[in-house]
């Protein structure tokens, strides 16, 4: 699947997530970068923020990745009581595993043999960021936001997922106060696998609904 970021090899000159490295500090200084520096310095000088707080927040956000969501999914696949708690209250169930969900109201929607779920934020970019990390760029594009709710099957085909007609597609439109995560269906042929092995099958896109988990 072209959008899967669980590649186990890196191309030369590409980052671990498979993108070209972007220069941080050696491109010409932009107006908006100057604004960011100014805002940050003023907020520190006025005593609203400390540099340590900003560094810690960046570190916390960097530490969030789809691997967190994958661990939650794998637990739900192996522990029916946890699965029930996750479907009842995904924020609480994720906190139970030690993930900092913040004030996020997180709702897990379960894929089954006859239902496929897809998440979008038509108004902006709301995403289960506390569990999965920052959203991919395409999630924030006009094309995805506009079309996911109107022709989800066509959008899914662009992601390489061609769902049979008998599968119902349910599209969930996120808001700042209510965010979704897809609980993908456990792939066949995984009976003997433990939680860690199962988590390795769970891709970011499978938790957005634009993909399926890997097969063993």
């Amino acid at each position: 699947m072209p959008h899967d970021h669980h590649d186990h090899f890196h191309h030369a000159g590409m980052s671990p997530s498979g993108h070209p490295y972007r220069a941080d500090n050696d491109t010409p200084l932009s107006y908006w970068q100057r604004m960011e520096i100014a805002v940050r310095e003023l907020m520190v000088e006025k005593g609203h923020l400390t540099p340590a707080e900003i560094a810690a927040q960046i570190e916390a956000m960097d530490a969030r990745s789809p691997a967190n969501g994958a661990a939650v999914v794998a637990r739900a696949w192996t522990d029916p009581a946890f699965r029930a708690r996750l479907l009842k209250n995904a924020s609480e169930a994720s906190r139970e595993m030690g993930f900092d969900i913040g004030p996020l109201n997180l709702i897990a929607v379960e894929n089954t043999a006859d239902t496929h779920n897809l998440i979008v934020c038509t108004l902006c970019s709301c995403y289960p960021r506390n569990l999965l990390g920052l959203p991919p760029d395409w999630y924030k594009t006009r094309a995805y936001r506009s079309r996911a709710v109107r022709e989800p099957r066509a959008v899914l085909r662009e992601f390489g997922l061609d769902l049979p007609d008998h599968v119902t597609v349910r599209v969930h439109d996120s808001t700042a106060d209510m965010r979704y995560i897809v609980l993908p269906a456990r792939p066949d042929g995984t009976d003997g696998m433990d939680e860690a092995q199962l988590a390795a099958l769970v891709t970011r896109d499978s938790m957005i609904g634009t993909g399926l988990p890997h097969r063993p």
Partner: peptide
């Protein structure tokens, strides 16, 4: 079409 380019 959904633009698939991403960046870090």
């Amino acid at each position: 079409p959904v633009p698939m380019d991403g960046h870090d």
